[in-house]
Design a protein around this nucleic acid. Structure first.
Lengths: 252, 252
DNA sequence: TCGGTCAAATGGCCTGACCAATTGAATCAG
DNA sequence: CTGATTCAATTGGTCAGGCCATTTGACCGA
Protein backbone atom coordinates (compact mmCIF):
# COMPACT_ATOMS: atom_id res chain seq x y z
CA UNK A 1 0.00 0.00 0.00
CA UNK A 2 2.59 2.55 1.04
CA UNK A 3 4.94 1.10 -1.47
CA UNK A 4 2.49 1.58 -4.30
CA UNK A 5 1.96 5.22 -3.39
CA UNK A 6 5.64 5.85 -3.07
CA UNK A 7 6.54 4.57 -6.47
CA UNK A 8 4.31 7.11 -8.19
CA UNK A 9 6.71 9.93 -7.50
CA UNK A 10 8.90 10.43 -10.50
CA UNK A 11 12.15 10.83 -8.60
CA UNK A 12 11.46 7.56 -6.83
CA UNK A 13 10.84 5.86 -10.16
CA UNK A 14 14.09 7.26 -11.53
CA UNK A 15 15.93 6.09 -8.42
CA UNK A 16 14.37 2.64 -8.79
CA UNK A 17 15.46 2.49 -12.41
CA UNK A 18 19.05 3.49 -11.70
CA UNK A 19 19.20 1.15 -8.70
CA UNK A 20 18.06 -1.71 -10.92
CA UNK A 21 20.82 -0.94 -13.41
CA UNK A 22 23.35 -1.02 -10.59
CA UNK A 23 22.03 -4.28 -9.18
CA UNK A 24 22.07 -5.86 -12.61
CA UNK A 25 25.65 -4.77 -13.13
CA UNK A 26 24.90 -2.50 -16.06
CA UNK A 27 26.48 0.21 -13.93
CA UNK A 28 29.47 -1.42 -12.34
CA UNK A 29 30.93 -0.63 -8.94
CA UNK A 30 33.67 1.95 -9.21
CA UNK A 31 32.39 3.37 -12.47
CA UNK A 32 30.88 6.74 -13.10
CA UNK A 33 27.27 7.36 -13.96
CA UNK A 34 26.38 9.66 -16.84
CA UNK A 35 26.18 13.31 -15.85
CA UNK A 36 22.95 14.62 -14.36
CA UNK A 37 22.19 16.56 -17.55
CA UNK A 38 22.75 13.49 -19.67
CA UNK A 39 20.66 11.27 -17.43
CA UNK A 40 17.88 13.85 -17.50
CA UNK A 41 17.95 13.85 -21.28
CA UNK A 42 18.11 10.09 -21.61
CA UNK A 43 15.30 9.58 -19.14
CA UNK A 44 13.22 12.52 -20.45
CA UNK A 45 12.87 14.12 -17.03
CA UNK A 46 14.11 17.35 -15.54
CA UNK A 47 17.52 17.64 -14.03
CA UNK A 48 16.23 18.40 -10.49
CA UNK A 49 14.28 15.15 -10.67
CA UNK A 50 17.49 13.29 -11.48
CA UNK A 51 19.23 15.07 -8.63
CA UNK A 52 16.51 14.03 -6.21
CA UNK A 53 16.75 10.43 -7.40
CA UNK A 54 20.50 10.43 -6.95
CA UNK A 55 20.15 11.77 -3.44
CA UNK A 56 17.93 8.80 -2.62
CA UNK A 57 20.58 6.44 -3.96
CA UNK A 58 23.33 8.24 -2.10
CA UNK A 59 21.53 8.00 1.22
CA UNK A 60 21.00 4.33 0.49
CA UNK A 61 24.74 4.04 0.07
CA UNK A 62 24.75 2.88 -3.55
CA UNK A 63 26.45 5.90 -5.07
CA UNK A 64 28.83 8.67 -4.10
CA UNK A 65 28.21 12.12 -5.52
CA UNK A 66 31.25 14.30 -6.10
CA UNK A 67 30.88 17.91 -7.15
CA UNK A 68 32.67 18.74 -10.35
CA UNK A 69 33.56 15.14 -10.93
CA UNK A 70 30.49 12.96 -11.19
CA UNK A 71 28.45 10.24 -9.54
CA UNK A 72 30.19 6.98 -8.73
CA UNK A 73 28.75 3.58 -7.96
CA UNK A 74 30.14 2.37 -4.66
CA UNK A 75 27.98 -0.66 -3.91
CA UNK A 76 25.86 -3.03 -5.87
CA UNK A 77 23.30 -3.54 -3.11
CA UNK A 78 21.81 -1.17 -0.62
CA UNK A 79 23.38 -1.15 2.85
CA UNK A 80 21.36 -1.72 5.93
CA UNK A 81 17.73 -1.49 6.73
CA UNK A 82 16.41 1.05 4.31
CA UNK A 83 14.42 0.04 1.29
CA UNK A 84 13.89 -3.54 0.30
CA UNK A 85 16.18 -4.90 2.97
CA UNK A 86 13.34 -4.37 5.41
CA UNK A 87 11.22 -6.98 3.72
CA UNK A 88 9.89 -9.49 4.68
CA UNK A 89 8.10 -7.59 7.38
CA UNK A 90 9.30 -8.37 10.86
CA UNK A 91 6.54 -9.20 13.22
CA UNK A 92 6.29 -7.93 16.78
CA UNK A 93 6.85 -11.39 18.24
CA UNK A 94 9.90 -11.88 16.08
CA UNK A 95 11.22 -8.59 17.33
CA UNK A 96 10.71 -9.56 20.95
CA UNK A 97 12.35 -12.94 20.40
CA UNK A 98 15.30 -11.29 18.71
CA UNK A 99 15.58 -8.86 21.58
CA UNK A 100 15.47 -11.70 24.06
CA UNK A 101 18.35 -13.46 22.35
CA UNK A 102 20.44 -10.37 21.72
CA UNK A 103 19.76 -8.34 24.84
CA UNK A 104 20.22 -11.33 27.13
CA UNK A 105 23.64 -11.89 25.62
CA UNK A 106 24.48 -8.22 26.07
CA UNK A 107 23.26 -8.21 29.69
CA UNK A 108 25.41 -11.26 30.35
CA UNK A 109 28.46 -9.54 28.93
CA UNK A 110 27.65 -6.32 30.78
CA UNK A 111 27.56 -8.19 34.09
CA UNK A 112 31.07 -9.41 33.41
CA UNK A 113 32.49 -5.98 32.64
CA UNK A 114 30.43 -3.43 34.57
CA UNK A 115 32.19 -0.78 36.60
CA UNK A 116 30.68 1.37 39.38
CA UNK A 117 30.25 4.37 37.10
CA UNK A 118 28.33 2.18 34.67
CA UNK A 119 25.96 1.21 37.45
CA UNK A 120 25.55 4.84 38.41
CA UNK A 121 24.48 5.64 34.89
CA UNK A 122 21.95 2.81 34.92
CA UNK A 123 20.65 4.13 38.23
CA UNK A 124 20.17 7.53 36.65
CA UNK A 125 18.03 6.08 33.89
CA UNK A 126 16.01 4.12 36.47
CA UNK A 127 15.46 7.18 38.57
CA UNK A 128 14.50 9.21 35.56
CA UNK A 129 12.10 6.58 34.31
CA UNK A 130 10.43 6.30 37.71
CA UNK A 131 9.73 10.03 37.68
CA UNK A 132 8.08 10.16 34.28
CA UNK A 133 5.72 7.16 34.21
CA UNK A 134 2.87 9.52 33.40
CA UNK A 135 4.63 11.16 30.47
CA UNK A 136 4.41 8.85 27.48
CA UNK A 137 7.25 10.18 25.38
CA UNK A 138 9.63 10.79 28.27
CA UNK A 139 9.09 7.32 29.71
CA UNK A 140 9.80 5.76 26.36
CA UNK A 141 12.99 7.74 26.08
CA UNK A 142 14.04 6.65 29.57
CA UNK A 143 13.12 3.07 28.77
CA UNK A 144 15.25 3.21 25.66
CA UNK A 145 18.10 4.79 27.62
CA UNK A 146 18.08 1.92 30.10
CA UNK A 147 18.36 -0.69 27.38
CA UNK A 148 21.00 1.11 25.38
CA UNK A 149 22.71 1.91 28.69
CA UNK A 150 23.31 -1.78 29.23
CA UNK A 151 24.87 -2.03 25.81
CA UNK A 152 26.97 1.01 26.66
CA UNK A 153 28.51 -0.88 29.58
CA UNK A 154 30.16 -3.15 27.03
CA UNK A 155 31.48 0.03 25.34
CA UNK A 156 30.53 -1.11 21.89
CA UNK A 157 28.78 1.33 19.63
CA UNK A 158 27.51 -1.36 17.29
CA UNK A 159 25.70 -2.99 20.19
CA UNK A 160 24.37 0.36 21.34
CA UNK A 161 23.04 1.08 17.90
CA UNK A 162 21.50 -2.36 17.35
CA UNK A 163 19.84 -2.21 20.78
CA UNK A 164 18.46 1.24 20.08
CA UNK A 165 17.21 0.26 16.65
CA UNK A 166 15.42 -2.81 17.94
CA UNK A 167 13.83 -0.64 20.61
CA UNK A 168 12.76 1.89 18.00
CA UNK A 169 11.34 -0.78 15.73
CA UNK A 170 8.52 -1.22 18.16
CA UNK A 171 7.77 2.48 17.98
CA UNK A 172 6.08 2.53 14.62
CA UNK A 173 3.59 5.34 14.09
CA UNK A 174 0.80 2.93 14.93
CA UNK A 175 2.26 1.93 18.27
CA UNK A 176 3.29 5.44 19.06
CA UNK A 177 -0.23 6.61 18.56
CA UNK A 178 -1.35 3.97 21.03
CA UNK A 179 1.25 5.05 23.53
CA UNK A 180 0.34 8.68 23.34
CA UNK A 181 -3.30 8.04 24.08
CA UNK A 182 -3.28 5.08 26.40
CA UNK A 183 -0.05 4.81 28.25
CA UNK A 184 -0.10 2.82 31.47
CA UNK A 185 1.65 4.08 34.58
CA UNK A 186 0.99 0.71 36.21
CA UNK A 187 2.70 -1.25 33.48
CA UNK A 188 5.56 1.25 33.34
CA UNK A 189 6.11 0.81 37.07
CA UNK A 190 6.28 -2.94 36.59
CA UNK A 191 8.86 -2.37 33.88
CA UNK A 192 10.91 -0.16 36.19
CA UNK A 193 10.86 -2.87 38.86
CA UNK A 194 12.03 -5.42 36.36
CA UNK A 195 14.76 -3.05 35.24
CA UNK A 196 15.97 -2.87 38.84
CA UNK A 197 16.33 -6.63 39.02
CA UNK A 198 18.47 -6.53 35.88
CA UNK A 199 20.50 -3.66 37.30
CA UNK A 200 21.11 -5.49 40.54
CA UNK A 201 22.33 -8.64 38.80
CA UNK A 202 24.69 -6.62 36.61
CA UNK A 203 25.96 -4.71 39.64
CA UNK A 204 26.62 -8.00 41.40
CA UNK A 205 28.61 -9.26 38.43
CA UNK A 206 26.15 -12.12 38.10
CA UNK A 207 26.17 -12.88 34.37
CA UNK A 208 23.68 -15.75 34.55
CA UNK A 209 21.45 -13.71 36.82
CA UNK A 210 21.55 -10.72 34.52
CA UNK A 211 20.64 -12.92 31.57
CA UNK A 212 17.77 -14.50 33.48
CA UNK A 213 16.51 -11.12 34.68
CA UNK A 214 16.58 -9.66 31.17
CA UNK A 215 14.86 -12.78 29.86
CA UNK A 216 12.18 -12.47 32.54
CA UNK A 217 11.71 -8.79 31.80
CA UNK A 218 11.36 -9.29 28.07
CA UNK A 219 9.07 -12.28 28.65
CA UNK A 220 6.82 -10.17 30.83
CA UNK A 221 7.00 -7.49 28.22
CA UNK A 222 5.93 -9.97 25.59
CA UNK A 223 3.11 -11.15 27.80
CA UNK A 224 1.84 -7.65 28.30
CA UNK A 225 2.20 -7.00 24.58
CA UNK A 226 0.37 -10.20 23.65
CA UNK A 227 -2.52 -9.38 25.91
CA UNK A 228 -3.03 -5.91 24.54
CA UNK A 229 -2.46 -7.07 21.00
CA UNK A 230 -4.93 -9.89 21.26
CA UNK A 231 -7.53 -7.61 22.66
CA UNK A 232 -6.92 -5.11 19.94
CA UNK A 233 -7.54 -7.55 17.16
CA UNK A 234 -10.44 -9.37 18.71
CA UNK A 235 -12.28 -6.18 19.46
CA UNK A 236 -11.55 -4.12 16.37
CA UNK A 237 -11.63 -6.61 13.56
CA UNK A 238 -13.01 -4.46 10.78
CA UNK A 239 -12.16 -1.00 11.92
CA UNK A 240 -8.77 -0.42 10.44
CA UNK A 241 -5.93 1.16 12.31
CA UNK A 242 -7.48 4.35 13.51
CA UNK A 243 -9.49 2.83 16.28
CA UNK A 244 -8.13 3.11 19.76
CA UNK A 245 -7.39 0.09 21.90
CA UNK A 246 -9.09 -0.72 25.13
CA UNK A 247 -5.99 -0.97 27.25
CA UNK A 248 -2.49 0.29 27.53
CA UNK A 249 0.13 -1.25 25.36
CA UNK A 250 2.83 -3.56 26.50
CA UNK A 251 6.03 -1.98 27.69
CA UNK A 252 9.51 -3.37 28.06
CA UNK B 1 37.07 13.07 6.54
CA UNK B 2 34.12 11.88 4.54
CA UNK B 3 31.84 13.40 7.04
CA UNK B 4 33.41 16.84 6.77
CA UNK B 5 33.11 16.88 3.00
CA UNK B 6 29.53 15.78 3.15
CA UNK B 7 28.40 18.48 5.48
CA UNK B 8 29.42 21.21 3.07
CA UNK B 9 26.47 20.63 0.83
CA UNK B 10 23.67 22.89 1.81
CA UNK B 11 20.91 20.32 1.52
CA UNK B 12 22.86 18.06 3.83
CA UNK B 13 23.22 20.87 6.32
CA UNK B 14 19.51 21.56 6.16
CA UNK B 15 18.77 17.86 6.65
CA UNK B 16 21.13 17.78 9.62
CA UNK B 17 19.40 20.76 11.13
CA UNK B 18 15.91 19.34 10.75
CA UNK B 19 17.08 15.93 12.00
CA UNK B 20 18.48 17.58 15.09
CA UNK B 21 15.18 19.31 15.74
CA UNK B 22 13.42 15.95 15.47
CA UNK B 23 15.90 14.21 17.76
CA UNK B 24 15.59 16.97 20.33
CA UNK B 25 11.81 16.71 20.24
CA UNK B 26 11.24 20.19 18.89
CA UNK B 27 9.45 18.47 16.06
CA UNK B 28 7.44 15.75 17.72
CA UNK B 29 6.59 12.39 16.23
CA UNK B 30 3.22 12.43 14.51
CA UNK B 31 3.32 16.15 13.93
CA UNK B 32 3.59 17.99 10.69
CA UNK B 33 6.62 19.99 9.65
CA UNK B 34 6.17 23.49 8.26
CA UNK B 35 5.53 23.56 4.54
CA UNK B 36 8.48 23.44 2.17
CA UNK B 37 7.96 27.07 1.22
CA UNK B 38 7.87 28.13 4.88
CA UNK B 39 10.94 26.08 5.77
CA UNK B 40 12.78 27.60 2.83
CA UNK B 41 11.91 31.07 4.05
CA UNK B 42 12.77 30.36 7.67
CA UNK B 43 16.08 28.77 6.74
CA UNK B 44 16.88 31.32 4.02
CA UNK B 45 17.45 28.69 1.36
CA UNK B 46 15.65 27.81 -1.83
CA UNK B 47 12.72 25.45 -1.87
CA UNK B 48 14.46 22.79 -4.00
CA UNK B 49 17.19 22.70 -1.35
CA UNK B 50 14.56 22.04 1.32
CA UNK B 51 13.05 19.34 -0.88
CA UNK B 52 16.41 17.64 -1.26
CA UNK B 53 16.97 17.77 2.49
CA UNK B 54 13.56 16.28 3.14
CA UNK B 55 14.26 13.46 0.71
CA UNK B 56 17.36 12.62 2.73
CA UNK B 57 15.28 12.49 5.89
CA UNK B 58 12.60 10.43 4.21
CA UNK B 59 15.08 7.82 3.01
CA UNK B 60 16.45 7.73 6.55
CA UNK B 61 12.96 6.96 7.74
CA UNK B 62 12.50 10.02 9.94
CA UNK B 63 9.71 11.67 7.98
CA UNK B 64 6.92 10.77 5.61
CA UNK B 65 6.20 13.14 2.75
CA UNK B 66 2.62 13.31 1.53
CA UNK B 67 1.73 15.30 -1.57
CA UNK B 68 -0.88 17.96 -0.94
CA UNK B 69 -0.83 17.30 2.78
CA UNK B 70 2.60 17.90 4.24
CA UNK B 71 5.63 16.29 5.81
CA UNK B 72 5.11 14.22 8.93
CA UNK B 73 7.61 13.09 11.53
CA UNK B 74 7.38 9.35 11.92
CA UNK B 75 10.40 8.57 14.03
CA UNK B 76 12.62 10.43 16.40
CA UNK B 77 15.73 8.53 15.47
CA UNK B 78 16.92 7.26 12.15
CA UNK B 79 16.28 3.60 11.43
CA UNK B 80 19.12 1.36 10.47
CA UNK B 81 22.51 2.08 9.18
CA UNK B 82 22.13 5.21 7.14
CA UNK B 83 22.91 8.75 8.19
CA UNK B 84 24.02 10.10 11.52
CA UNK B 85 22.87 7.07 13.44
CA UNK B 86 26.12 5.60 12.26
CA UNK B 87 27.96 8.06 14.44
CA UNK B 88 29.93 7.63 16.56
CA UNK B 89 31.74 5.64 13.94
CA UNK B 90 31.72 1.96 14.69
CA UNK B 91 35.15 0.53 14.49
CA UNK B 92 35.98 -2.79 12.94
CA UNK B 93 36.89 -4.27 16.30
CA UNK B 94 33.67 -3.08 17.82
CA UNK B 95 31.83 -4.73 14.98
CA UNK B 96 33.62 -8.01 15.54
CA UNK B 97 32.96 -7.88 19.26
CA UNK B 98 29.30 -7.15 18.64
CA UNK B 99 29.14 -10.03 16.21
CA UNK B 100 30.79 -12.31 18.74
CA UNK B 101 28.19 -11.46 21.35
CA UNK B 102 25.20 -11.55 19.06
CA UNK B 103 26.10 -14.38 16.72
CA UNK B 104 27.25 -16.63 19.54
CA UNK B 105 23.86 -16.18 21.18
CA UNK B 106 22.14 -16.93 17.89
CA UNK B 107 24.28 -20.04 17.28
CA UNK B 108 23.42 -21.23 20.77
CA UNK B 109 19.72 -20.81 20.11
CA UNK B 110 20.05 -22.43 16.68
CA UNK B 111 21.63 -25.52 18.22
CA UNK B 112 18.60 -25.87 20.44
CA UNK B 113 16.07 -25.64 17.65
CA UNK B 114 17.73 -26.91 14.47
CA UNK B 115 15.93 -29.46 12.33
CA UNK B 116 17.46 -31.72 9.66
CA UNK B 117 16.32 -29.51 6.81
CA UNK B 118 18.01 -26.55 8.51
CA UNK B 119 21.27 -28.48 8.57
CA UNK B 120 20.84 -29.36 4.91
CA UNK B 121 20.56 -25.72 4.06
CA UNK B 122 23.71 -24.94 6.02
CA UNK B 123 25.46 -27.74 4.16
CA UNK B 124 24.42 -26.18 0.89
CA UNK B 125 26.00 -22.88 1.83
CA UNK B 126 29.17 -24.68 2.94
CA UNK B 127 29.36 -26.60 -0.30
CA UNK B 128 28.74 -23.49 -2.29
CA UNK B 129 31.37 -21.54 -0.43
CA UNK B 130 33.94 -24.28 -0.87
CA UNK B 131 33.45 -24.15 -4.63
CA UNK B 132 33.94 -20.41 -5.01
CA UNK B 133 36.94 -19.58 -2.85
CA UNK B 134 38.60 -18.01 -5.88
CA UNK B 135 35.67 -15.76 -6.71
CA UNK B 136 35.71 -12.80 -4.37
CA UNK B 137 32.13 -11.63 -4.67
CA UNK B 138 30.61 -15.12 -4.74
CA UNK B 139 32.55 -16.28 -1.70
CA UNK B 140 31.41 -13.23 0.24
CA UNK B 141 27.84 -13.94 -0.71
CA UNK B 142 28.22 -17.57 0.41
CA UNK B 143 29.90 -16.46 3.61
CA UNK B 144 27.02 -14.11 4.31
CA UNK B 145 24.53 -16.85 3.52
CA UNK B 146 26.12 -19.15 6.09
CA UNK B 147 25.88 -16.57 8.83
CA UNK B 148 22.35 -15.49 8.02
CA UNK B 149 21.50 -19.16 7.54
CA UNK B 150 22.21 -19.77 11.19
CA UNK B 151 19.88 -16.95 12.10
CA UNK B 152 17.31 -18.45 9.75
CA UNK B 153 17.31 -21.66 11.80
CA UNK B 154 15.75 -19.64 14.60
CA UNK B 155 13.13 -18.50 12.07
CA UNK B 156 13.33 -14.91 13.10
CA UNK B 157 13.55 -12.28 10.40
CA UNK B 158 14.82 -9.61 12.77
CA UNK B 159 17.80 -11.79 13.60
CA UNK B 160 18.36 -12.58 9.95
CA UNK B 161 18.37 -8.92 9.10
CA UNK B 162 20.63 -7.86 11.99
CA UNK B 163 23.07 -10.64 11.15
CA UNK B 164 23.10 -9.65 7.50
CA UNK B 165 23.56 -6.00 8.31
CA UNK B 166 26.47 -6.65 10.62
CA UNK B 167 28.01 -8.78 7.90
CA UNK B 168 27.50 -6.00 5.38
CA UNK B 169 28.94 -3.39 7.68
CA UNK B 170 32.34 -4.81 7.07
CA UNK B 171 31.86 -4.44 3.37
CA UNK B 172 32.43 -0.74 3.10
CA UNK B 173 33.56 0.56 -0.31
CA UNK B 174 37.14 0.51 0.92
CA UNK B 175 37.03 -3.13 1.95
CA UNK B 176 35.16 -4.14 -1.15
CA UNK B 177 37.93 -2.71 -3.21
CA UNK B 178 40.40 -4.76 -1.25
CA UNK B 179 38.34 -7.90 -1.64
CA UNK B 180 37.95 -7.50 -5.35
CA UNK B 181 41.66 -7.19 -5.89
CA UNK B 182 43.26 -9.36 -3.27
CA UNK B 183 41.03 -12.09 -2.05
CA UNK B 184 42.64 -15.03 -0.30
CA UNK B 185 41.63 -18.60 -1.17
CA UNK B 186 43.73 -19.89 1.72
CA UNK B 187 41.98 -17.75 4.30
CA UNK B 188 38.60 -18.52 2.79
CA UNK B 189 39.31 -22.25 3.12
CA UNK B 190 40.15 -21.75 6.79
CA UNK B 191 36.86 -19.94 7.20
CA UNK B 192 34.99 -22.80 5.54
CA UNK B 193 36.60 -25.28 7.93
CA UNK B 194 35.59 -23.17 10.88
CA UNK B 195 32.08 -22.98 9.49
CA UNK B 196 31.98 -26.78 9.45
CA UNK B 197 32.81 -26.97 13.14
CA UNK B 198 29.93 -24.58 13.86
CA UNK B 199 27.63 -26.60 11.63
CA UNK B 200 28.56 -29.84 13.35
CA UNK B 201 27.87 -28.45 16.81
CA UNK B 202 24.51 -27.11 15.71
CA UNK B 203 23.63 -30.41 14.07
CA UNK B 204 24.53 -32.22 17.29
CA UNK B 205 22.25 -29.92 19.27
CA UNK B 206 25.24 -28.82 21.30
CA UNK B 207 24.38 -25.25 22.28
CA UNK B 208 27.55 -24.61 24.26
CA UNK B 209 29.64 -26.16 21.53
CA UNK B 210 27.98 -24.06 18.85
CA UNK B 211 28.62 -20.95 20.88
CA UNK B 212 32.24 -21.87 21.42
CA UNK B 213 32.74 -22.73 17.74
CA UNK B 214 31.24 -19.45 16.61
CA UNK B 215 33.36 -17.62 19.18
CA UNK B 216 36.48 -19.39 17.91
CA UNK B 217 35.59 -18.63 14.29
CA UNK B 218 34.99 -14.95 14.91
CA UNK B 219 38.13 -14.77 17.04
CA UNK B 220 40.16 -16.25 14.20
CA UNK B 221 38.44 -13.88 11.85
CA UNK B 222 39.42 -11.00 14.09
CA UNK B 223 42.97 -12.26 14.21
CA UNK B 224 43.18 -12.45 10.43
CA UNK B 225 41.58 -9.02 10.18
CA UNK B 226 43.98 -7.51 12.70
CA UNK B 227 46.97 -8.86 10.88
CA UNK B 228 45.97 -7.54 7.50
CA UNK B 229 44.85 -4.25 8.97
CA UNK B 230 48.06 -3.66 10.80
CA UNK B 231 50.08 -4.38 7.72
CA UNK B 232 47.94 -2.08 5.67
CA UNK B 233 48.55 0.90 7.88
CA UNK B 234 52.19 0.32 8.48
CA UNK B 235 52.96 -0.01 4.81
CA UNK B 236 50.77 2.71 3.33
CA UNK B 237 50.90 5.46 5.83
CA UNK B 238 50.67 8.48 3.60
CA UNK B 239 49.09 7.14 0.47
CA UNK B 240 45.42 7.69 1.12
CA UNK B 241 42.76 5.18 0.30
CA UNK B 242 43.48 4.48 -3.32
CA UNK B 243 46.57 2.42 -2.72
CA UNK B 244 46.25 -1.32 -2.83
CA UNK B 245 47.20 -3.51 0.09
CA UNK B 246 49.91 -6.10 0.11
CA UNK B 247 47.86 -9.08 1.25
CA UNK B 248 44.39 -10.49 1.34
CA UNK B 249 41.95 -9.23 3.86
CA UNK B 250 40.65 -11.10 6.84
CA UNK B 251 37.59 -13.19 6.29
CA UNK B 252 35.00 -14.58 8.66
C1' DT C 1 59.71 16.02 -17.34
C1' DC C 2 57.28 18.82 -14.20
C1' DG C 3 54.47 22.62 -12.82
C1' DG C 4 51.17 26.17 -13.89
C1' DT C 5 47.21 27.91 -16.41
C1' DC C 6 42.92 27.65 -18.54
C1' DA C 7 38.81 25.89 -20.67
C1' DA C 8 35.35 22.49 -20.47
C1' DA C 9 32.58 19.56 -17.86
C1' DT C 10 30.58 18.51 -13.70
C1' DG C 11 27.53 19.06 -9.59
C1' DG C 12 25.20 22.81 -6.39
C1' DC C 13 21.91 26.21 -5.78
C1' DC C 14 18.58 29.62 -7.06
C1' DT C 15 14.21 31.84 -9.18
C1' DG C 16 9.93 31.39 -11.13
C1' DA C 17 6.18 28.98 -13.09
C1' DC C 18 2.67 25.57 -13.48
C1' DC C 19 0.48 21.05 -12.32
C1' DA C 20 -1.38 17.29 -9.11
C1' DA C 21 -3.21 16.03 -4.64
C1' DT C 22 -5.23 17.08 -0.24
C1' DT C 23 -7.95 19.46 3.12
C1' DG C 24 -11.31 22.22 5.14
C1' DA C 25 -14.95 25.50 4.68
C1' DA C 26 -19.11 26.80 2.45
C1' DT C 27 -23.25 25.61 0.20
C1' DC C 28 -27.04 22.79 -1.12
C1' DA C 29 -30.50 19.21 -0.76
C1' DG C 30 -33.30 16.06 1.82
C1' DC D 1 -30.40 19.56 11.36
C1' DT D 2 -27.46 16.35 8.92
C1' DG D 3 -25.01 14.51 5.18
C1' DA D 4 -23.23 15.11 0.58
C1' DT D 5 -21.11 17.97 -2.84
C1' DT D 6 -18.38 21.69 -4.52
C1' DC D 7 -14.68 24.80 -4.53
C1' DA D 8 -10.83 27.56 -3.04
C1' DA D 9 -6.63 27.50 -0.62
C1' DT D 10 -2.68 25.02 0.61
C1' DT D 11 0.43 21.60 -0.04
C1' DG D 12 4.01 18.84 -2.51
C1' DG D 13 5.85 17.52 -7.51
C1' DT D 14 8.04 18.77 -11.67
C1' DC D 15 9.92 21.67 -15.05
C1' DA D 16 12.85 25.39 -17.43
C1' DG D 17 16.53 28.35 -17.24
C1' DG D 18 20.28 30.61 -15.20
C1' DC D 19 24.55 31.24 -12.66
C1' DC D 20 28.22 29.72 -9.35
C1' DA D 21 31.76 26.42 -7.29
C1' DT D 22 34.63 22.50 -8.04
C1' DT D 23 37.13 19.19 -10.65
C1' DT D 24 39.68 17.39 -14.46
C1' DG D 25 42.43 17.12 -18.37
C1' DA D 26 44.85 19.33 -22.08
C1' DC D 27 48.25 22.51 -23.31
C1' DC D 28 52.21 25.37 -22.79
C1' DG D 29 56.43 27.03 -20.87
C1' DA D 30 60.59 26.47 -18.14
Amino acid sequence: MFSAVESRRLYRQVADQIRLMIIRGDLAVGHRLPAERDLAEQLSVSRPTVREALIVLEVEGLVNIRMGSGIYVVRQHAVGSTGSEREPVEGPFELLQARAIIECAIAEEAARTAKPEDIERLDETLQRMSGVVNDASAVLAADRAFHTGIAAIVQNSTLIRVTGEMFDMRLTPYFEKLASHFEGPVTWRSAVDEHRVIRDAIAAGDAAGAKAAMRAHLTMSQKRFSESFGEEFSGEEGRGQQAGPKKGIAVT
